[in-house]
């Protein structure tokens, strides 16, 4: 039985949480830009998640997860410190190549804030001037501000409702950074596809190289199913083995977003099924407790 023990959990909000998992070999091998595939249990699906951080000395990898679908909600409920995942494989994908950029904007939107962190850190370590732009819907959802402050030369926090930092989306933050610095070599943007698309559109007129990290639907993550194929310019690439990083100015985001909706109906079904089962199990345990109390 494999053992991928959860050694730390942190809840950032009622939907976003962090898991730190013991896997010394993976911690040693992981590089910024790579992802893992997680299986919660034997009946589970294989969920690709970008590595948010790794600690070589502790031998752990960190994932930040948003409870939106059946599996992630179940993970939120069941993944406690001391429990183990059924499957964890990686690091997958081509690591982000070492950049020689001197001035970089690292953009993270929502959940994308987590995976952009190791990239920003690596850039800082290589001597670049790092401008962080991280965006959240509202103040309560902000996480890792201190971690970013520690490695960024400048940090712009954006919020959709203006409750913290700059009022507006991350694109407003990028505009601000571009206005202030005329010598930006590269923008790295990670987040929901619609956000990455807007970031690419924002930088396109300035012709600033913009790298994005794609997370389409996958099964194996090893180049075998082709479910994660994406259109990059006039080519078709598999995000799992040819990516996940691509030139944002070449990515066909509309195609990606359509393909991400492929299983919407089934995802809903799975969630309903799980919630119903959960209800049944709860009812059963209540019945049992009542029976036990009666016999006493």
């Amino acid at each position: 039985m494999p053992n991928f023990e959860i050694v730390k959990r942190e809840d950032f909000s009622d939907v976003t949480f962090l898991l730190e998992i013991r896997h010394p070999l993976m911690a040693k091998a992981a590089k910024p830009g790579q992802f893992v595939i997680v299986m919660l249990n034997e009946h589970g699906e294989r969920v690709p998640l970008t590595i948010a951080d790794f600690d070589r000395s502790k031998g752990t990898v960190t994932l930040v997860i948003q409870a939106v679908g059946k599996t992630t909600k179940q993970m939120q409920q069941e993944c406690k410190v001391g429990t183990s995942l059924y499957g964890l494989v990686g690091p997958m994908g081509i690591p982000t190549p070492e950049s020689h950029a001197k001035k970089v904007v690292c953009v993270g939107g929502g959940l994308g804030v987590a995976p952009v962190y190791p990239q920003a850190r690596a850039l800082k370590e290589s001597g670049a001037y790092v401008i962080g732009v991280i965006g959240f819907r509202t103040k309560d959802l902000v996480f890792w501000e201190d971690k970013f402050r520690a490695i960024c030369d400048e940090l712009i926090i954006c919020s959709d409702d203006g409750s913290v930092g700059l009022h507006g989306r991350v694109t407003a933050g990028i505009e601000q950074a571009i206005k202030k610095h005329t010598d930006i070599d590269e923008v790295i943007a990670i987040g929901p596809p619609i956000m990455m698309k807007s970031c690419a559109e924002t930088t396109r007129p300035y012709k600033i190289k913009t790298m994005v990290s794609l997370n389409p639907i996958m099964v194996d993550g090893t180049g075998m199913c082709g479910g994660c194929r994406v259109k990059i310019g006039d080519q078709v690439k598999f995000a799992c083995v040819d990516g996940p990083d691509f030139d944002g100015h070449l990515v066909d985001f509309d195609d990606l977003m359509t393909r991400l909706r492929r299983y919407t109906k089934e995802e809903r079904m799975a969630l309903d099924h799980w919630e119903k089962e959960k209800g049944c199990r709860m009812q059963k345990s209540i019945d049992k407790a009542v029976d036990a109390a009666r016999t006493k």
């Binding site: 009946h43 294989r46 099964v219 479910g227 099924h273």
Partner: peptide, 21 residues
Amino acid sequence: NELLTRCNLMRAKEFPSFDTP
């Protein structure tokens, strides 16, 4: 490959008892 992997390995034929659709 995707159809067969989903069905054979991930047991999608038993969805939603198995999570893979």
